[in-house]
């Protein structure tokens, strides 16, 4: 009784804290927490437009046996493994190149690379849809000037991954360059001067000073790029619909397809759980890598 009363008084004292927390948290519960819990729950049900019956691990068994799922996992990981390091390295090279320029020139370059990012994946993908067209796309025309035979790009399983990577690379580097330029700006110029006086080569300075000092930025970039790759959806939706067959489908896109095109909610939920597990694994690994480094 006494304890309950104390809780009551405390809650009363905390009333203003709750005033600021509750509106946001209700929305957060409704649109984040409850859907997440329901995803896990419904993944154990045979669930579609008409029925909902408990199915145990049925959906997961079906999922692991499905060609589309295996292709999705493979492609999602493939995109992550290609795009994350490629965009990080390219952005770092661009950032270090434009950093020594004056403020004006720097912001022109930054703006040029970031503009496609602002305009967004939908519009950029729509343009590329036309550029990639096998017959009247400008890309095949340009290549023909160099004597290269026309390619099918998005319609060919051999080139579709490369095509999607190309499109993503055309906008994704913008924000990474901004992050790296800001990171470079935080490095004390005295360090570079000192290294130069001590006779360090530019390469030595880069690998021994610049790169280690940029580590926090790099970690942030790698983590966010990995998560971005796991969420690849709009590019796939616009450019390939996951095809040809399943050659470019991703987990995020396959979930959408199973839910809205096939109406198999249970299976889509099980796939959603797999995506959550994948993201959690990657986040925890990078988090551990970062905090482990800080302890040393």
């Amino acid at each position: 009784m006494q304890a309950l009363k104390k809780v009551g008084t405390n809650l009363y004292r905390q009333r203003w804290a709750w005033f600021f927390i509750i509106p946001g948290y209700i929305i957060f519960l409704l649109f984040n927490i409850i859907p997440t819990l329901r995803t896990v729950y419904t993944s154990f049900f045979d669930y579609n437009l008409t029925t909902m019956e408990f199915a145990g691990f049925g959906n997961y068994i079906k999922l692991f046996g499905s060609e589309a799922f295996r292709a999705s996992v493979g492609n999602t990981l493939l995109f992550a493994v290609i795009i994350t390091p490629l965009s990080t390295v390219v952005s770092l090279l661009i950032a270090t190149t434009i950093f020594p320029l004056g403020n004006k020139a720097q912001s022109v370059y930054r703006g040029a690379f970031f503009l496609p990012n602002v305009i967004g994946g939908v519009i950029i993908s729509a343009i590329w849809l036309w550029i990639f067209h096998p017959v009247y796309g400008v890309l095949n025309y340009v290549l023909s000037l160099f004597g290269i035979q026309p390619l099918l790009w998005l319609a060919d399983a051999k080139t579709v991954i490369l095509s999607v990577v190309l499109v993503i690379m055309s906008w994704t580097c913008g924000s990474l360059i901004i992050l790296y330029v800001a990171g470079l700006g935080n490095i004390d110029p005295c360090l570079m001067e000192a290294a130069k006086i001590d006779g360090a080569s530019p390469a030595q300075t880069f690998f021994r000073i610049t790169l280690p000092l940029l580590k926090p930025v790099t970690t942030f970039i790698i983590t966010t790029q990995l998560i971005n790759c796991f969420q690849l959806w709009e590019v796939i939706y616009l450019l390939t619909d996951g095809g040809p067959v399943n050659a470019s489908t991703t987990l995020a896109f396959d979930i959408y397809k199973k839910a809205f095109l096939l109406g198999d909610y249970g299976l889509a939920a099980a796939e959603g759980v797999m995506l959550i597990v994948l993201c959690a694994l990657v986040s925890l690994t990078t988090l551990r890598a970062v905090s482990g480094k800080e302890e040393k």
Binding site: F31, L251, A252, Y256, Y265, A269, I276, C279
Partner: peptide, 15 residues
């Protein structure tokens, strides 16, 4: 860290 696509159906049903 959670992609919204993973909870798409329950979110859609909630809305």
């Amino acid at each position: 860290m959670l992609p919204r696509q993973s909870v798409l159906i329950p979110l859609f049903q909630m809305v």
